[in-house]
């Protein structure tokens, strides 16, 4: 089976499983709604404070959802005792990585779009002008999170205290992505053009390239028998 087809097969299988069970998706949506409500209760009255804090809270929501989604990357393999199958798979294991990455990306982007929409509606935020820029930033940021997250998920899949270790490993490494996305989102929501946050966008792009390259090169090592 060719490389690309193997990657697609992994992604398709994961998405099919997710479509049937909707476990992760439901958990993520519920969690985002919770975040929305808490945000409203604490800051709903004060319009100015809300606007100031919104970028941070939005990405906090994205990141926490990402932790949930990414942490479960290899859950199916673990629960149904298919881990050995992964280890014994022939050929370049990075195809598995790409498949898992694609699946994670799809899931994360769907949830993020939903959350963004909900926030815009419930907090009466005009996304209009900022939207194209926001799409770019969200895409790049999510790719960065997912790239390293999928790799680390593979590393922590069969480890003690997995649920604790995974965020502890991922979050410090992702600080550049978090900083860049929050600051860029902040500027965009204030009406600045994408060009004004060009340096953040370039940082995100550079980070994505680095993370993808390292993950593709080292995923084989992680899944060694």
């Amino acid at each position: 089976m060719s490389y690309a087809r193997r990657a697609l097969a992994v992604a398709w299988k994961d998405l099919a499983v997710e479509r049937r069970s909707k476990e992760t998706l439901n958990a993520l949506i519920f969690f985002s709604l919770l975040l929305l409500f808490v945000f409203q209760f604490t800051l709903g009255g004060d319009r100015e404070r809300l606007a100031a804090v919104l970028p941070g809270v939005l990405w906090l929501g994205f990141v926490l959802s990402a932790l949930l989604a990414l942490g479960r990357t290899f859950l199916v393999e673990r629960e149904h005792d298919c881990w050995e199958g992964l280890l014994l798979a022939p050929g370049d294991k990075s195809a598995i990585y790409l498949g898992k990455l694609a699946g994670n990306l799809a899931l994360m982007l769907v949830v993020e779009a939903l959350v963004l929409g909900l926030f815009a509606v419930f907090f009466d935020i005009d996304l209009g002008r900022a939207l194209p820029g926001l799409v770019v930033v969200v895409l790049l940021g999510t790719l960065g999170l997912a790239a390293v997250g999928t790799l680390f998920a593979g590393m922590t899949a069969n480890v003690r205290a997995r649920e604790l270790l995974f965020p502890v490993l991922l979050l410090p490494v992702q600080v550049p992505v978090l900083l860049a996305t929050v600051k860029a989102t902040e500027a965009l929501l204030l009406g600045e053009p994408l060009a004004a946050v060009g340096h953040w966008v370039k940082l995100l792009a550079a980070a994505d390239v680095v993370y993808l390259a390292v993950s593709l090169l080292t995923f084989d090592v992680v899944l060694e028998g």
Binding site: V175, P176, L179, K183, L203, A207
Partner: peptide, 10 residues
């Protein structure tokens, strides 16, 4: 280096 630049710019 990514940490360094992002924090410095921030």
């Amino acid at each position: 280096p990514l940490v360094h630049f992002s924090v410095y710019w921030w």
